[in-house]
Design a binder for these strands. Structure first.
Lengths: 198, 198
DNA sequence: CACGTTATTCATCACATGATGAAATGTGGC
DNA sequence: GCCACATTTCATCATGTGATGAATAACGTG
């Protein structure tokens, strides 16, 4: 009986194995973090030998950064948030955050980034990048006073929201409709950005 | 020359090696999380063979829960926060949170808990416990409406604050004086607890 | 002082991980 | 059809992990 098991070498057809591996990697890194994700696990889930993973992506860390390729270009979204001036910037920020995190395509890399931010390795990389790439430009475009303080306050609320809604999936936050969240958080964020500071 | 290296068996004197191991374990679990912390690493840092760790604490997971032994008794602090009624409960909550997290004694176990909450294993355990042990009783004592929603909102802000100030150590949040933080966050928390909900 | 108990290390297991190099198999151009 | 090349697996290394059991040394009680 000629078994179907592919024994060795190249398989027939032209399956995009590289993309399959990358997809699995994104998933795992996002859901379990860097340390808890193993190259072998990714390989198995992708129906592939672990050596192939190394062949395509090099080291595990290389694969990680490859899986982080963001779907969101900061230079593209910052103007959208900033346009319109100080009024309503809180709402636009929240709305943008939710739309990005509610889209699976862009969520996975963000989750991986978020997770890695709290693991011992990458440390300051993520918050720093986030602050400089998004919140920094926004605050600059709006000409806020004490931008560092305001940006950090906003970040503290947004990080908490993301952590509970998307990472820990706490109810009723996880299932709350976007409009409710916007209505709830927009005033707070707006206050952090443009209100008086003690 | 009689070297000082202890070769085998029990060492002279009565050093509390068990406590030393536990201290190191608390530190490591808090700073690196469960997965990234190794029994051998703890043993080495405590100047001890790894077998001794197992001798005292059993499995690695046992050691972990042993290191979580909280310094804070919820039943003790909840009345303090709730006493005084709705007015000023936001400020009392923030003040309590900061005092607990600014004390190294109580911070380490909390950090370990927090970290484990975002690793794949413990999952819902921590937020659930936190909500039920602290925020739940508080909201009940205050007779709030829609307690789940309000409690989650508060948690989202507090988790973000803790994540940035104590875990990621983002400035200027990390070095901000307590009074400033109280003044900044108390109104928001108060609003989440007692203000109108959309 | 003898003896059981406790504290401590050594040697070792079984296993999982990341990584590499050689071999096998298909695809495409000439 | 042949040959360079890309794709895929196998076999293997070195390392690190959690864990166990036997051996040794100090302590405490009789």
């Amino acid at each position: 009986m000629s078994t179907t098991a592919p024994r060795r070498g190249r398989r027939p057809g032209s399956p995009d194995t590289r993309a399959a591996i990358l997809a699995v990697a994104r998933q795992r890194f996002a859901q379990q973090g860097y340390a808890a994700t193993s190259v072998r696990g990714i390989a198995t889930a992708a129906g592939v030998d672990s050596a192939l993973v190394h062949h395509y992506f090099g080291t595990k860390e290389d694969l990680f950064v490859a899986s982080l390729e963001l779907r969101v270009d900061p230079r593209e979204i910052v103007p959208v948030v900033a346009a319109g001036g100080r009024d309503g910037v809180g709402e636009r920020l929240i709305r943008l955050l939710l739309s990005v995190w509610d889209d699976e395509e862009s969520r996975l890399p963000l989750m991986a980034l978020m997770r890695s931010a709290f693991e011992p390795e990458g440390k300051a990389l993520v918050p720093d990048a986030f602050g400089r790439l998004i919140l920094g430009p926004v605050s600059e475009a709006l000409e806020l006073d004490q931008p560092e303080r305001r940006v950090t306050l906003v970040a503290s609320q947004l990080v908490g929201l993301v952590a509970l809604r998307y990472i820990a999936r706490i109810e009723p936050l996880a299932s709350a409709p976007v409009e409710t969240l916007v209505a709830t958080y927009a005033p707070v964020v707006q206050g952090y950005l443009t209100g008086p500071l003690p």
